[in-house]
Computed example of a mutant assay.
Amino acid sequence: MFADLLKRLTAPEPEKLPDPDARLALGALMVRIARSDGDYADVEIAEIDRRLMERYRMGPQQAAALRAQCEALETEAPDTVRFTRAIKDAVGHDDRLAVVEAMWAVVMADGVRDDAEDSLMRMVVNLLGITDQESHAARLRITKP
Rank of each mutant, 00 (worst) to 15 (best):
R85H: 07
A102G: 11
G59K: 08
L97G: 11
D118Q: 09
A68E: 07
P145S: 09
D37C: 11
L26Q: 10
Q61L: 10
G92K: 15
D95M: 14
L5H: 00
T75G: 03
G111C: 07
T131W: 03
A28C: 08
T143L: 14
S36R: 13
R139G: 03
A64T: 12
M103A: 15
M30Y: 05
G38Q: 04
L128C: 14
Q133W: 04
A25W: 06
D118R: 04
L29I: 05
I33P: 01
A102M: 14
D118G: 09
I45R: 15
M108D: 12
E117T: 00
D21G: 02
L17Q: 10
R139D: 01
L29K: 15
V43W: 13
R82S: 03
L9H: 03
I48C: 08
D114G: 08
T84Y: 10
A77H: 12
R139M: 10
M1L: 04
D79H: 14
D4Y: 00
A3H: 08
Q61V: 07
L29Q: 15
L5G: 01
A137G: 10
W104Y: 11
A63Q: 10
D21I: 11
Q61H: 03
L5K: 01
A105I: 05
A72D: 06
E117V: 01
D118T: 14
L97Y: 07
W104K: 05
C70I: 01
P60T: 07
S135I: 00
